[in-house]
Design a protein around this nucleic acid. Sequence first.
DNA 1: TAGATTGTTAATCGATTAACAATC
DNA 2: TAGATTGTTAATCGATTAACAATC
Lengths: 217, 217
Amino acid sequence: MKSSTVTIPNAVIHRLPRYYRYLRDIMDEGVERISSIDLSKRMGVTASQVRQDLNHFGDFGQQGYGYNVAYLREEIAKILGLSESHPVIIFGAGHLGTAIANHSNFPRRGFEILTLFDNDPKVIGTTINGMLVRDENELESFLAENKVEIAILALPKAVTQSVADRLISLGVRYFLNFAPVDLRYDDPSIIVESVHISDSMMTLSYRIAKSQEEKKG
Amino acid sequence: MKSSTVTIPNAVIHRLPRYYRYLRDIMDEGVERISSIDLSKRMGVTASQVRQDLNHFGDFGQQGYGYNVAYLREEIAKILGLSESHPVIIFGAGHLGTAIANHSNFPRRGFEILTLFDNDPKVIGTTINGMLVRDENELESFLAENKVEIAILALPKAVTQSVADRLISLGVRYFLNFAPVDLRYDDPSIIVESVHISDSMMTLSYRIAKSQEEKKG
DNA sequence: TAGATTGTTAATCGATTAACAATC
DNA sequence: TAGATTGTTAATCGATTAACAATC
């Protein structure tokens, strides 16, 4: 792998999971090696982009041969840090939190969900996919006894920032946020990735409006 | 509004929902007008970008004054097509489908969820947030009697493409897809927006790995 | 009017694509 | 070896930022 001091373009980083997904499908088809041109055709991008993207991280291919599918996928897994194990908690055991707790691929990719937290007496004490839902008041004592790296925030917009603040003050630094807010924080070592479902819905709405307008002329 | 024949950069389109969110917060604070510089500071972008972005759609500001918050927000709502009503069905009444069916902001933004479909006898016939979960076998007859624009696919990866194919053959053209696949389709009038939760998780993982590696030197 | 701030043009920066020498 | 295909440099394209004249 190349020196990692060079900053990788954000666009490239966001394409990595997509390569990872496609390589899985290709592997499942029993294809052993693939050229950048064939991979690019499947993914609907240019072969140049495939080669440029991958070359940010290393020389994974071989002239005249292409890329070994299984090897390339493994290398991308390494780049994405999927070989590392990350202890995770889910904050909010509503439908969204429950959906995530049932996501079967997470453990396989190093995300070890330890437990969920909620404030609803109806769900506290129940188990979801074998994991206990704890009272959010137990957060402090739980974090004192368990190492937690990532918190998944599946909470209403109104409380998300304050829960994040609380988690940050307790030493959690990595977040996957599902609420339609951009989390605020001072510590530059904190990393937040957001999934804004309603933003996607609005983008879809825009594209629908645009296409219908074009149809009219 | 400016002529819409000019193609708006994708990056701009994806920022629109973010403007829309921020303007709501600003409105809720009772702020009546805002300059591009103040808005840019809140959003962590440049004032130039704010003005360039908005000027793709029209002259919403006024020299020496700035932008009227409520007016600008309304205009963005129009651009996003949130004033139009869109009949929606949700395919898959698992936890994710249920979470979306309970999303309180959807109706307010023109997304009228009509019903959910599933193949699990345990949930067929139940109601979620007042909406009936129907047997997926009823899809054809339902679509014959009800106009449906958008299908939200909250299904396992393995069945998502085939359900999409079925919906497309029945005339549905707009999709919000939650499965970790890129839907395939021939008809260029079909529009798909995807929410790839596991891609976001992998991006987070990459950024964690990167930051820990940097710490080590 | 003077001050503020937009809308817009021009300059810069970054990302994508094309081309080809290197090499398996 | 000849053919295929990479890795990489150079050219192009697009998006962001800077600057400022227009104007409220």
